[in-house]
């Protein structure tokens, strides 16, 4: 059943709180790129994808690959909220024995679609799944999310070329274009602009949207589904650290956990 905008926004806020709290408890992790991806992950898991958390290996399910695996807190919170994994263990993130590993690990969470963490690999995995769906005559779709820093990896462009060549129209690449990577601003480390033009040149149907707008995300995903004969890339303009004022657009919070005081402040903002 489709969720209302208000329900989605409430979920997004709750997931933002969970992200901040779990990374604070872990004392390490990647808050900025988790917070920038929240609306896209929420829309996919709670509205758009055909999935069944109680039957996670259902062969016809849609698949999601978090290629930017370091942003796993957003995925863990969404999967826990959806009922895949225990919500009361989110704060064991990154601790010995936790299913919530530092990067997504299928050995600990079998309902994950891929183990990720080494950047640049998720698009190829998605292509493999897309090809398998086509060979098997199944209608499922595969969504893969990338960081804008991540797409500096050459494998992304090998994969982009091959997806268009094989006309894999059952996959969608979502680029979380927040403009910041570990060492600073993307434009200062290794410029990726003009990003949409690059994907178009590689043969992809490419859309640019506000990655924090549910209506925009919904419209883009619908357009992707209606696009036949080529894969779709959604370049989503986002704000790193979105929702927490002192994290927004702050490269420090790519890979730094908030202190206990910062967690408190963040939670006040996320009420």
């Amino acid at each position: 059943m489709a969720k209302s905008l208000e329900e989605l926004q409430d979920l997004a806020k709750r997931i933002r709180r969970e992200i901040v709290v779990m990374i604070g408890a872990a004392k390490s992790g990647h808050p900025g790129g988790s917070l920038s991806a929240v609306e896209m992950v929420v829309e996919l898991y709670f509205n758009h994808m055909h999935i069944d958390p109680h039957n996670p290996k259902w062969p016809d399910r849609d698949r999601f690959i978090l290629s930017k695996g370091h942003a796993c807190p957003v995925l863990y919170a969404a999967m826990a909220e959806a009922g895949y994994t225990p919500i009361d263990q989110l704060n064991t993130l990154r601790k010995l024995g936790s299913i919530y590993q530092g990067h997504p690990d299928m050995r600990f969470i079998p309902s994950l679609e891929a183990s990720t963490g080494s950047l640049g690999e998720g698009l190829s995995l998605a292509i493999g799944m897309g090809l398998a769906a086509r060979l098997d005559g199944r209608g499922y779709r595969t969504y893969a999310m990338f960081g804008d820093g991540e797409i500096q990896e050459g494998q992304i462009w090998e994969a982009a070329m091959s997806a268009a060549f094989h006309k894999i129209d059952n996959i969608v690449a979502l680029v979380d274009y927040n403009g910041i990577q570990l060492d600073g601003f993307v434009k200062d480390i290794m410029e990726v602009a003009p990003l949409a033009d690059k994907w178009r040149a590689f043969g992809w149907h490419t859309l640019e949207i506000d990655g924090h707008s549910f209506p925009a995300i919904q419209q883009a995903l619908a357009e992707a589904e209606a696009t036949k004969g080529k894969p779709t890339c959604i370049v989503a303009h986002t704000i790193k650290g979105k929702g927490v004022s002192f994290m927004e657009n702050n490269p420090k919070f790519h890979g730094t956990a908030p202190t206990p005081d910062e967690v408190k402040l963040a939670l006040q903002e996320l009420q």
């Binding site: 891929a114 995995l125 998605a126 292509i127 493999g128 799944m129 398998a132 090998e158 994969a159 091959s162």
Partner: peptide, 24 residues
């Protein structure tokens, strides 16, 4: 059932992994 990957072995390897994850 033959997938031409071009001269791109890294991509080919991970495409293979994706196919396997989907049951092939």
């Amino acid at each position: 059932r033959f997938i031409s990957c071009g001269i791109a072995e890294a991509n080919m390897t991970a495409i293979g992994a994706g196919l396997a994850l989907a049951g092939k």
